[in-house]
Design a protein around this nucleic acid. Sequence first.
RNA 1: GCGGGCAUAGCUCAGUUGGUUAGAGCAUCUGGUUGUGGUCCAGAGGGUCGCGGGUUCGAGUCCCGUUGCUCGCCCCA
Length: 414
Amino acid sequence: MSTLQPVRGTHDLMFEDIRRHRHVQSKFSGIAERYGYSEIATPVFEATEVFARTLGDTTDIVTKEMYTFETKGGESVTLRPEGTAGVARAFVSEGLAQQAPLKFFYSGPMFRHERPQKGRQRQFHQIGVELLGVPGPQGDVEVIAMADHILKDLGLTGKITLELNSLGDHESRAAYRQVLIDFLSVRRDKLSAESRERLEKNPLRVLDSKDPADKEIVASAPRFPDHLNQISRDFFKAVQDGLGEIGIHFTLNPALVRGLDYYTHTAFEFTTEALGAQGTVLAGGRYDGLVQQMGGPPTAGIGWAAGVERLAMLLHELPALRRPFAIIPVGDAENAVAQKLCHRLRHAGFNVDLGYGGNMGKRMKRANKVNAVAALIIGENEVKQSVVTFRQLDSGEQVTVAMADLESHLALYR
RNA sequence: GCGGGCAUAGCUCAGUUGGUUAGAGCAUCUGGUUGUGGUCCAGAGGGUCGCGGGUUCGAGUCCCGUUGCUCGCCCCA
């Protein structure tokens, strides 16, 4: 047991793990591009205020989960805990308002100083999209449709359900918030300690408390949907109708909330039962107030982010790796020929493995271990006749192929 | 930040009421096979039993502490 360990909550990704990540990643970018989104890579760290200002001072992320440190120049910087703030900052600092509407997708590591557990790490990876400058419900529909599309393409249909809610516009939200506070304040003594705290900092959060006593109170609480004004109602209905028209199923969940002030209207989550306590696999919503809050012009925005680790855990089958051809020199005398052939075939586009040493038996073993389609054996006789012995490793069938014909012969087995 | 579980070979794990030299499977290496892998057979290497202390004639096993991992709470993707 080595004493040198990766930092708590971080992991080395290799072999099958990284293939899972790559698979998620490439499905995602392929589909995002199909929807007309272009990639953006913002820095993994930003000035601390980028996150502190946008996420809100009372959220756990800001109060206890950020990796914040001081640079040699005395600035406070923070490793990004999520992706939206960075994109919004780029929108403002690059003056992108002129080009709106803009459609971005991103992916990469995020950092939160939390207690690690299943589906939760201190360095984890997200994929996400942001649609900026589209105030209408068709934006919400598109972004959700894209999320659904990606999950389907990853083969996760059936394991995941879409939950939907509306937080209304600012007016509805403020009104409901007050109604809820009034309701809960009267029953304050019956609430759990945690919910009493939520009541102070983030009253909407009481709605999704897991405490049984809280649940009972919440069950009779005024409901958000009943307090939406006409504009918000119409907006929400348009989103639901839009999803219905393209056959995307969803469940309404009035308890689905977002604590921050800049969230408006649509909030959604794709959740699963398969990941223990971390059921949310992809979550997003509309954040029409965010860009303005960061000092930009009033700009509508909607987007989502998904946890790559969580998605990767749900994948059952990965696409098969391309099988290589193994080149096997029988003795040292054939090394140079083998090396040359290897180079030639790789440039012809074939996946070629050439071991670094050992006798023939060892090299055959290696060929087997790398799951080669065939071994190309080159010995004294083969060199003399300008051929290779081509052995299919699954069947053991063996034929002689002229060196000059190798490209066309290999193409049959690729 | 709070609570539970776990820690024995590279990996997955077994190890009895505390008792001799701590085991298995997989993986690795060697040989059976000097131009043939995957199967088979024979063998080998590999351990500070997480770390520190205590109890005991004797500790992988019991106790205390500590570190790490893991699951859950809070919160989140």
